[in-house]
């Protein structure tokens, strides 16, 4: 009986540990894709805490008005810079996402005549953007479809 229980424990443990590897689980989407963005968000929170502290210390009479104004201005400026960096970072990310989406779309789209050129030497069909003809090796004209 004990042997059976032992085997059961062993097999279940091995199964549970090994399952993700045999299943070759898809990579989980990282919630924090952009590390730099994550850090910026934390920095923003830190500056917000600082501004909150300043307000509280001023209202409870620990900070002189001049110091309060000077420090608040400085931290608000810092917050502004961070917010701008966050905006830039998010914009970059959006642009990158759009580029990827465009590339994926163009990869999966049916090729049209516009996507091909013909070798000026032998007339073989080649993909737009190729530098040389894969059949005769002649240099192909540089016709960028994006231009």
């Amino acid at each position: 009986m004990i042997i059976v229980v032992e085997i059961l424990i062993f097999v279940s443990a091995m199964f549970f540990v090994g399952y993700p590897i045999f299943k070759r689980q898809e990579a989980r989407i990282k919630t924090q894709e952009n590390e730099a963005l994550g850090e910026l968000i934390h920095k923003k929170e830190a500056v917000y805490i600082s501004i909150k502290d300043l307000d509280f210390d001023y209202r409870t009479g620990k900070l002189s008005e001049d110091d309060y104004k000077e420090l608040k201005e400085r931290y608000e400026l810092e917050a502004l810079h961070i917010l701008k960096d966050i905006d830039d970072s998010e914009r970059e990310k959006t642009t990158a996402d759009k580029t990827i989406a465009r590339q994926v779309a163009s990869e999966s789209a049916e090729p049209t005549d516009k996507d091909f050129i013909f070798c000026p030497k032998c007339g073989t069909k080649a993909k737009m953007g190729d530098s040389f003809c894969f059949k005769c090796g002649a240099k192909l004209p540089n016709l960028n479809p994006a231009t």
Partner: peptide, 16 residues
């Protein structure tokens, strides 16, 4: 608790 974050002014500190 009597001291402010960042920069406490001496006069405020004395008062507190």
């Amino acid at each position: 608790p009597l001291i402010a974050w960042k920069k406490a002014s001496i006069s405020n500190f004395k008062r507190n």
